[in-house]
Amino acid sequence: MFLNPKATLMNRAEITRALTRIAHEIVERNKGAENLALVGIHTRGVPLAERLAALIGSFEGASPPLGQLDITLYRDDLTEIALQPVVKKTDVPFDVRGRNIVLCDDVLYTGRTARAALGALTDMGRPAVIQYAVLVDRGHRELPIRADFVGKNVPTSRGEVVKVRLQSTDGDESVELLEWR
């Protein structure tokens, strides 16, 4: 079985346009950027949060504070898995209490990562609001979770894989749909 490319879902320009739109939506929804903070979920949520913060800074004057979250210790499958996940550092250098926090990730799939991130974040304090921004929503939720900001909705089958590549982590910029064959 090999992972074979099936389709390109987004190219560099489309990713940039989607992020620009999401940045505007975030500011509109939160009535400005004042109380805002962005938290990226490791691994690719981190550069996405950075880019959204820079975009918001470019039209609001100041970039909102940034954090990064590792959700490993909050996963719900640690008693069942065969491979040990490497625990990475969490770095949220601001007080989450009372803030409007936007969690950022690349792909929304089962919703389990988002659930774990909510646990990790609320253990740091009680934010005023937590919103959720993703580049791709591919469906197949296993929990009652939805995103507030979506770059692109993509219908997929469970046998398919959505691979996001970003300049800072992968040296390239695309969203690909792949399939095991």
Binding site: L73, K88, T90
Partner: peptide, 27 residues
Amino acid sequence: TALFNTADVMAQVMERTIKKVPALQGF
């Protein structure tokens, strides 16, 4: 080395107000 890197993350947990994570729930 892997153990020490993991211990760094655990030390972060012990610096928080809520000094608890659900990682070993069920063990």
